[in-house]
Each structure stands twice: as C-alpha cells, then as structure tokens.
Amino acid sequence: MKITRKDVEHVALLSRLEMGEAESEKFTGQLNAILDYVEVLNKVDTTGIEPTAHVLPLKNIMRPDETRPSLPRDLALANAPEQEDGYFKVPKIMEG
C-alpha cells in the first residue's frame, strides 16, 4: 500500500496540522519508507493466528474504585498556554 500526498494532507487536516507543499511531500516519502521497512511482515503467513490485542502476557489489571487526591488547580493549569477563571482557554472552535 502506497501513501499518497492526498493521504498525508488528509491526516494533517484531521490532526489540525498546517503544512506546506514541501513538507507534505517530505512526509509522504518518509511515511512510505517506514511502510516499506515493515513490509517484510506481510511475508509471514498469519493464517489462523488471532490478532494481537496486547504484546504483554497479562490480563485484567485493574484498580479498586477509590478516589485519590486530584491536582491542585493552579498546578493542573500550570502548562496551559492560556487560562481564564480556572478554565483552560482555547481558540474558537470552528463548526461548519
């Protein structure tokens, strides 16, 4: 499967990333190189093998339903580029 410029631009749009033509050209090449590299896996016969959900041989790792202290709010907001009145402040959301 080949990744096209259109795929890259589509994923960039979904990820809200802005990129120029040169960049999307570069990423198309890089992503294809990665896919070519793992292409070798397609040579393995996987008939009758269940898809892997997780690489570790573990199951049912859970915690009891108990609360723990949350972060103090000023700490929670410490890395926010912008904040207001205890909220994270984000750019206007464009819908439609």
Binding site: E82, K89, V90, P91, K92, I93
Partner: peptide, 12 residues
C-alpha cells in the same frame, strides 16, 4: 454566544 466569542473555556 458561540458565534460571537473568539475563544472557548474548557472544564476537564
């Protein structure tokens, strides 16, 4: 209003 504001506030 959504239309007029140029930003949004988020409560997580």
């Amino acid at each position: 209003t959504i239309a007029k504001s140029d930003y949004a506030l988020v409560d997580y």
